[in-house]
Amino acid sequence: MKLLSTLLAGGGLLLSGCLMSREARVESDYSYAGQFRRYRTYEFISGEGINSDTSRLGEAVRDAIRTRMKIQGYRPTRRRPDLLVNFRLFEGDMRFRGYSQDDFSKWVKNGSTEDEDTPAEARQGYQPVRMLLAEGTLLVTLIDNRTNRAVWNGYASGVSVPSGPQGEVVLRRSVRSIFDQYHVFTEGFLQGNNPPATDEPGN
């Protein structure tokens, strides 16, 4: 099953110089094959533009994502991370295909997961929903490193990034709103059973 692959391809990374003109629309969708109770570590996918280490706006997004992942018990590691994190910022309006699904938190709480052994009659099926995301979109995708498939996708539209420090504020706020859709703590974290990673970066 090649799921959500269109979210990782196409489109340049563009920044808007205008101010925020409307409240962001924040939504998410997920893969029924995601092993969400298994994931504990992550690493960023490197790239150019906002994904690069030299971009201040890119680092603002990375730092905001690091903060949320840490709060939820995830640990950064370069050694076989469970999740790869990718993010993109698109300028202007964007036609987008999401999915109509049950509440993500309920899906994870029930421990539901589909794999190649799941009978066809027991599969959930994906109901595509076409949307028009307006005035700039920040897209965050979590990828299962073992299968190289996207398992969760969060996006905020109405994200127009002004120049200077205010742009970093807008992006950090957008990341927080996106991760409010990802209500997953690592297994055992709330009980204090989450050992540190051996190669965790210093920041």
Rank of each mutant, 00 (worst) to 15 (best):
K2R: 14
L3T: 14
S5D: 15
S5N: 15
L8N: 11
L8G: 15
A9N: 12
G10H: 13
G10R: 11
G10L: 07
G10P: 13
G11C: 01
G11L: 01
G11W: 03
G12L: 07
G12N: 10
L14W: 07
L14S: 12
S16I: 04
S16Y: 05
G17I: 00
G17K: 10
C18I: 10
C18S: 11
C18V: 09
L19S: 12
L19Q: 13
L19W: 04
L19A: 08
L19V: 01
S21V: 09
S21F: 04
E23N: 07
R25P: 03
V26A: 08
V26C: 08
V26K: 09
E27K: 14
E27Q: 15
S28C: 14
D29R: 10
Y30F: 10
Y30W: 03
Y30C: 01
S31M: 05
Y32P: 10
Y32M: 01
A33G: 14
Q35R: 15
Q35K: 15
F36V: 07
F36N: 09
R37N: 13
R38W: 02
R38H: 09
R40D: 03
R40L: 00
T41D: 00
T41P: 00
T41F: 00
T41H: 01
Y42I: 00
F44P: 11
F44T: 02
S46N: 12
S46E: 13
G47S: 05
E48L: 12
I50K: 07
N51L: 10
S52Q: 10
S52E: 12
S52V: 11
S52K: 11
T54D: 15
T54S: 14
S55T: 04
S55D: 07
R56K: 09
E59Y: 01
E59F: 00
A60D: 00
V61T: 08
V61Q: 01
D63I: 02
D63E: 06
D63C: 02
A64Q: 07
I65D: 05
T67C: 05
M69F: 12
Q72S: 14
G73E: 07
Y74T: 09
Y74W: 05
Y74N: 06
R75G: 05
P76D: 03
R78Y: 10
R78A: 11
R79C: 05
R80S: 08
R80N: 09
R80Y: 03
P81C: 04
P81Y: 04
P81M: 05
P81R: 07
D82A: 09
L84N: 14
L84M: 13
V85G: 02
R88Y: 08
R88D: 09
L89K: 06
L89G: 00
F90N: 06
F90Q: 09
E91D: 14
D93H: 10
M94Y: 13
M94G: 10
R95H: 13
F96V: 15
F96S: 11
R97K: 15
R97D: 11
G98Y: 11
G98D: 15
G98E: 13
Y99L: 08
Y99F: 12
S100H: 11
S100T: 11
S100L: 12
D102Y: 06
D102I: 04
D102C: 02
D103V: 03
D103C: 01
F104V: 03
S105F: 04
S105I: 00
K106D: 09
W107F: 14
V108E: 06
V108T: 07
V108S: 08
K109E: 09
K109P: 01
N110I: 01
N110T: 06
